[in-house]
Simulated assay, not measured.
Amino acid sequence: MPLGSPLPDVVIPKVNFSHYVLDLLGKYGDDVAVIDESDGAKSYTYRQIRENIIKCASAFNKLGIKKGDVVATCCGNCAAYPVVFVASATCGSIMSTCNPIYTKDEILKQFVQSQPKAVFVNDENYDTMVEVAKVVRSIKYIFSVDSNQRCTSFHDLISKASTRDFPRNVKISQDDVLLLPYSSGTTGLPKGVMLTHGNVVSCLTIVR
């Protein structure tokens, strides 16, 4: 005999991840969204995070980061992380995460496959990423989430952005790949896992 839940069915909205998140962020305004322990416990409101996402997406679009390109993060947890993720999604790009303490060879195993166009790093692994970029020729931009003087920082990237460059007409479906994390499972080298906009929106809707 089939069993049913007394609760109503969860209705999954037919929108892409960026649309879903930007709409939610707009509802919470000046409530605190993120506290960045890596930056002296500095706090950011939902409004500020949303504004930074729009600036970051505008900067990406001006740089030519477009649908299907890969944006990689190889940095520790920080306030820039969710901004880069949603901004990448807004451009139709794919975000791929990488362990910031990986060695050059470990990063190469991942990046030779994922072919990122832009990478976000910490100061500590900037030199390693420069060496990786000599092999992985798809890497055009290396940004630091810290205050690295040798490359463009995340702060400089968004502070110089103009919302006139915001990617307004990108056609993104729920079947487009949003996220490319790498997992080794139980054995072997890490393997890319393709998660779509629909996958992540469904999970977020269920959790809410």
Rank of each mutant, 00 (worst) to 15 (best):
M1I: 12
P6M: 15
N16C: 09
N16T: 00
S18R: 00
Y20D: 05
V21S: 03
L25Y: 04
G29T: 14
D31E: 15
V34L: 14
A41T: 02
K42I: 01
S43I: 06
T45I: 03
Y46E: 04
Y46W: 11
N52Q: 14
N52E: 11
K55Y: 08
S58L: 02
A59Q: 04
F60Q: 01
I65A: 04
D69H: 14
V71D: 13
A72G: 01
A72I: 05
C75W: 02
A79M: 11
F85P: 02
T90R: 03
T97P: 01
T97E: 13
N99G: 08
K104V: 15
E106M: 10
S114N: 11
P116A: 14
K117Y: 03
A118N: 06
Y126Q: 10
D127C: 10
V130P: 08
V132F: 03
K134R: 15
V136N: 08
F143V: 14
Q149E: 13
R150E: 13
D156P: 01
R168E: 13
I172D: 02
I172E: 02
L179M: 11
P181K: 10
P181Q: 12
S183C: 11
G188K: 01
G188R: 01
L189K: 00
P190W: 05
P190D: 06
M194Q: 12
L195E: 07
C203W: 00
L204R: 06
V207M: 10
